[in-house]
Design a protein around this nucleic acid. Structure first.
Length: 454
RNA sequence: GGCGCGGUGGCGGAGUGGUUACGCAGCGGUCUGCAAAACCGCGUACGCCGGUUCAAUUCCGGCCCGUGCCUCCA
């Protein structure tokens, strides 16, 4: 029944999605390395794949969504050294903050969130198997994957081994048999985190954790693997190499990659100093507005993050919530509007889906019959739920979360109504202007005067 | 150098071989004491040059511009 189409990086084209097991769809998404607070670029895949998982759950009876936490990494080690804080403290705190930030963006937690450090044994087992099968070798305490041992290496990124070597910018470590070989395991000094292994005390390379943990929770073959575009090479390419050479089974069937996020036309980077943390943005706009802004562009397109874009997202949500406010008793319909569903089924076309949200809102605004309004609001709520939007109380959204000053505002509205009755429009307008200066906008409707925050 | 992505009206941003995207901003109108909101109407965009075609923003080729990746960055 599913007409879901997804762009598969493996084929570089949109394909009809066919579940390996229609009774149980399995998806893995690369999660954060927990050494610093999440920035808006980290949030993009979380939001995008959250929508995908919500959609899959509507289409299939069972979905298992795995997103890992990388808690062993040289950036974490560097952070610990620089700050003097224990690694475990840094990773635990960063993980907690990540959860908080993502929850505020309306992203549901994954079903399973494995931590790399809790799966070292599985990684070691996989590395051993690769050595036994002739795909990996030990050299000076390192274990390296031998790229030449895999006939179809490079199928995801579309690079030949020779091209990679020709383009490499880093010096090749002397213990590598081949410049393209990559690390599965590396030795740790006493001051670095390490685990006992057949090759001495050490820690895993970057790619092996995803191979080991996806196999543990989703099996050797699963449906979808997602992440940021920059992970295509080397990370995902190497995951494929490790998993397929170890398991002799196709790894992920579909590879989905979200585009990059830019800030003011430039790449976000520490050197430019334009990293925008989610936490910081949450101080400027509600999480739902940030989510809406992210979904305003197609996930594979580059997204240029600007203040104007964030404001536009907030305005668009205001409009949708205003429409919902006219049908306060409406409840989410059982079915999502066909237009919205079709847009999402077409490779997660969220901008198109949002345009259909606006169309439903327009119809809602135009409807004169309350039961028709309720019906349309129900559709809007159902569509919003599928995208993780519009689940707030409309009145609460429009008037702001806090309740401070509400009684004062209401008293002034009463005064103004009395002034209007007495035809004292000068006073009525002054009250309205004073409130507007404080960011409170009054609107006279057929049902009386209402207010909202600007 | 290799591989890839993008250039759509004032802005954001979909999409299509010939017919309205959508939202914001703007203009005119309805409503209103006046506003706001809502509704109605308006603006005739697809980087450049060729080619294919009855017809191209949409397909093909070239060019220009921007941008991403090329061993640990979502």
């Amino acid at each position: 029944m599913s007409d879901l189409k997804l762009h598969n990086t493996l084929s570089k084209s949109k394909e009809g999605f066919v579940a390996l097991d229609p009774a149980h769809v399995r998806i893995y998404v690369c999660g954060p390395t927990v050494y610093d607070r999440a920035h808006i670029g980290n949030a993009r895949p979380v939001i995008v794949f959250d929508v995908l998982v919500r959609l899959l759950r509507r289409l299939y009876p069972r979905v298992t969504y795995v997103r890992n936490i990388t808690d062993v990494d040289d950036k974490i080690n560097a952070k610990a050294k620089a700050s003097g804080r224990p690694i475990a403290e840094i990773t635990a705190e960063t993980t907690k903050l990540f959860h908080e930030d993502m929850a505020l963006l309306g992203a549901l937690p994954p079903d399973i969130e494995p931590r790399a450090t809790a799966h070292i044994a599985q990684m070691i087992a996989m590395i051993q198997s690769l050595i036994e099968q002739g795909h990996a070798y030990e050299a000076e305490g390192h274990v390296l994957f031998h790229v030449a041992s895999m006939a179809d290496y490079g199928k995801l990124s579309g690079r030949s081994r020779d091209e990679m070597i020709a383009g490499a910018r880093v010096e090749v470590a002397p213990y590598k048999k081949d410049a393209a070989d990559f690390v599965l395991w590396k030795p740790s000094t006493d001051d670095l985190p390490g685990w006992d292994s057949p090759w001495g005390r050490g820690r895993p390379g970057w790619h092996i954790e995803c191979s080991a943990m996806s196999r543990e929770y989703l099996g050797e073959s699963f449906d979808i693997h997602g992440g940021g575009q920059d992970l295509i090479f080397p990370h995902h390419e190497n995951e494929i190499a490790q998993s397929e050479c170890c398991n002799h089974a196709p790894f992920a069937r579909f590879w989905l990659h979200n585009g990059f996020l830019k800030v003011g036309g430039e790449k976000m980077s520490k050197s430019i100093g334009n990293i925008l943390s989610v936490h910081q943005l949450l101080g400027e706009a509600p999480g739902e507005a940030i989510r809406f802004a992210v979904l305003s562009a197609h996930y594979r397109q580059p997204l240029d993050w600007t203040d104007e874009g964030l404001k536009a997202a907030k305005s668009a949500l205001d409009r949708l919530y205003r429409a919902l406010e006219t049908a306060p008793k409406a409840r989410a319909a059982a079915n999502v509007p066909e237009t919205v569903l079709a847009a999402l089924m077409d490779d997660l076309n969220t901008p198109l889906a949002i345009s259909h949200l606006h169309e439903v809102a327009s119809a809602l605004n135009k409807a004169s019959d309350q039961s028709e309004k309720d019906r349309l609001a129900g559709e809007l709520l159902a569509a919003g739920a599928l995208m993780g939007l519009l689940q707030n109380d409309p009145k609460g959204w429009l008037q702001g979360a806090g309740n401070e000053g509400v009684s004062e505002i209401e008293a002034l509205i009463e005064q103004r109504i009395a002034a209007k009755k007495a035809k004292d429009f000068a006073l009525a307008d002054r009250i309205r202007d004073d409130l507007k200066a404080k960011g409170i906008l009054l609107e006279d409707g057929p049902g009386g005067t209402s207010w909202r925050k600007l």
